[in-house]
Write a protein that binds this DNA or RNA. Structure first.
Length: 585
RNA sequence: CGGGGUGUGGCGCAGUCUGGUUCAGCGCGCUUGCUUUGGGAGCAAGAGGCCCUGGGUUCAAAUCCCAGCGCCCCGACCA
């Protein structure tokens, strides 16, 4: 399908609503948000709710089209799924609860409750259980490109995290895990192509399955300071993971300051010293010499978690280690109630008697004579030792990896980098099919639950990520496949009859040759047009001005590197096509 | 949900501390006319504001007090 064909109707600047701005509203913080506002791609209507203007809409269509082409290429079939989801469907999988407060809900006039689709697993699973009943129909992948609604705790970064956003979601239905691996691989490869074509450089990262459930999962991450996620990359081997998932190896050495000889534990007075820094500073020690005790609440009980002072707890790992479906930090009151201690001075010694499970991070195992809370006001214990002074319920990796930590594969130091999650693929398994009784008959006539995968892409995020990576102080630099127009044609002296005529001919020829063109024939000074051209970031700029046209030439400039050539105007279309094809991204 | 900030023509801001003849103002943008047209042009004339909302204090409120709302940022949380 030639998407360009449907764009021909817009051509001249005066016919398309592109209200560029010199100043950006203060609301914008991230580069992509600023540029999307300046270029009049979007306008904010409400917190996390955006209007797409023509320039933005065209880009969105380009992105959606790339996604659509690549989904079709792997044989996935496009469907349209309802925004209104009867709450009963979500109750079948319990996600009316787990999705909780991010659900937008509404009632019809008979008071039936609907959720505005935050994602569509229940809907497609419902569809499949009605339509699919034989192994002969499997595997099959269905996808949709639609608006989804989530009442985010905090929308941010413009379109990066909004409450209403466009997502491509596909769902594969497979007869077994091996079959699922095939669909998963196809999507994985399709995603690689999608992001490559979109000019979005991605790192593919091991990820947690979170609220979606399932087993294996990969995230497609675009490096960006605007991102709210963090990924761990190893500079030496290919290891990469979401920080939340990244494994922390047990340190092989204890800090140099520690000694092997176990000293006698002693109480010390630490008036008003709560934090690790305060305690360590007060005792003339470092953060790594202190062990902090963090109390968390699970579904039925409380746990005490021990972490080295210079480390941070990873609640997700802890949650998994505890086999809890969700945990939260206990409040100071709760801490004091369960431990009988004073908040800020909680320590492991004596906690076993309080019937608390003690989870130790694996780094605690090889430090000796550390400092810990004394469970009394203004008191800490020094020379505390694991096993001798308290017994851990278990040792596990429950801390957050940090910059410079050893790579869990090759031990080289890792880096931690902010990133935008543009895609996420999951092997769901039978979580949804079992909950919703989506079964099929095998070759042998057995009734088995369908094995599922789901695969999401944030379409708005493709655009924001592309802008985040490709811009300069003047504006956007569109990747060629995402660019809302291929060519920016500016007539410097639009009132000049000859220039007007040639420009019109150029415009028509561009369109006929399949290059979409934005023709800037405004009655403004040249500088305005140049500035807008740079801001809008259309890959190829063509200037028709008096000076050059006296010699029958026009100027052609590449946005990406500023390279300019002058060619006979009759050759401009061919030349632009060549230039376009030679663009690096 | 905690912390911080902010709300004044379309956009960016000043004015608020110290209430009143500098109080509704500046820059950009917009409209009209003329001159301009290869890097955000010049002159002239215009249009456009319930100073977030509600309540108070006062002779007098953009300005002080109380309450609410919107929006942004950090955190919590989150596909």
């Amino acid at each position: 399908m030639n998407i360009i064909a449907i764009f021909v109707q817009y051509m001249r600047w005066d016919e398309i609503l592109i209200t560029t701005r010199r100043d950006t509203p203060t609301e914008a913080e991230t580069v992509s948000n600023k540029l999307m506002l300046k270029t009049a791609m979007i306008r904010r209507l409400s917190s996390g709710v955006y209007i797409y203007l023509p320039f933005g809409m065209r880009t969105l269509l380009k992105a959606m089209n790339i996604v659509r082409e690549e989904m079709n290429r792997i044989g996935a079939q496009e469907v349209m799924l309802p925004v209104l989801q009867p709450l009963e469907l979500l109750k079948e999988t319990g996600r009316d609860k787990t999705l909780g407060s991010i659900l937008f809900t509404t009632k019809d006039k008979s008071n039936k409750i609907y959720a505005l689709g935050p994602t569509h697993e229940e809907i497609v699973t419902h569809l499949a259980r009605v339509e699919i009943n034989s192994y002969r129909q499997l595997p099959i992948s269905l996808y949709q490109i639609q608006v989804k609604f989530r009442d985010e705790p905090r929308p941010r970064g413009g379109v990066l995290r909004s409450r209403e956003f466009i997502m491509k979601d596909s769902y594969s239905f497979n007869k077994d895990w091996e079959c699922l691996s095939g669909s998963y691989k196809k999507h994985y490869d399709a995603y690689v192509r999608i992001f490559k074509r979109s000019g979005v450089n991605v790192h593919i990262v091991e990820a947690d399955t979170g609220a979606m459930g399932g087993s294996e999962s990969h995230e497609f991450m675009c490096r960006s300071d605007a991102g709210e996620d963090s990924m761990v990359l190893c500079g030496k081997c290919s290891y990469s993971a979401n920080v939340e998932k990244a494994e922390c190896l047990q340190p092989t050495h204890q800090p140099a300051s520690r000694t092997q000889i176990l000293r006698k534990p002693e109480e010390v007075n630490t008036p008003g010293k709560h934090s690790v820094q305060e305690v360590a500073g007060f005792l003339g020690l470092k953060g790594e010499d202190v062990v902090k005790t963090i109390v968390v609440r699970g579904s039925k009980k409380y746990y005490a978690c021990l972490i080295r002072g210079d480390h941070e707890i990873n609640l997700l790992k802890l949650q998994r280690a505890l086999k809890e479906s969700s945990i939260e930090l206990a409040t100071p009151d709760e801490v004091e109630n369960v431990t009988g201690s004073v908040f800020g001075f909680t320590g492991p010694v004596g906690l076993t008697e309080k019937n608390l499970d003690i989870i130790c991070d694996n780094s605690i195992e090889n430090i000796s004579n550390f400092v810990a809370g004394g469970n009394r006001k203004d008191t800490h214990l020094i020379n505390v030792n694991l096993y001798r002074d308290f017994k851990p319920t278990r040792i596990a990796d429950v801390r957050l990896i940090k910059e410079g930590d050893p790579c869990p594969r090759c031990l080289a130091p890792v880096s931690v980098t902010p990133c935008i999650e543009v895609g996420h693929i999951f092997k769901l398994g039978t979580k949804y099919s079992e909950a919703m009784e989506l079964n099929f008959l095998t070759e042998k006539g057995e009734n088995k639950p369908v094995v599922m995968g789901c695969y999401g892409i944030g379409v708005n995020r493709i655009i924001a990520s592309a802008i985040e990576t490709h811009n300069d102080e003047k504006g956007i630099i569109w990747p060629k496949e995402l660019a809302p127009f291929n060519v920016y044609l500016a007539s410097i002296n639009p009132s000049d009859k000859n220039i007007k005529k040639i420009s019109q001919t150029l415009h028509d020829n561009f369109e006929m040759s399949g290059l979409s063109v934005l023709w800037d024939d405004r009655d403004t000074s040249a500088g305005v047009k140049f500035a807008d051209a740079d801001l809008l970031g259309i890959p190829v700029r063509v200037i028709a001005g008096k000076k050059l046209l006296e010699n029958g030439k026009v100027d052609i400039k590449k946005r990406v590197d500023g390279q300019e050539v002058q060619v006979e105007w009759e050759k401009a279309v061919d030349q632009c096509r060549n230039i376009y094809n030679s663009l690096p991204f």
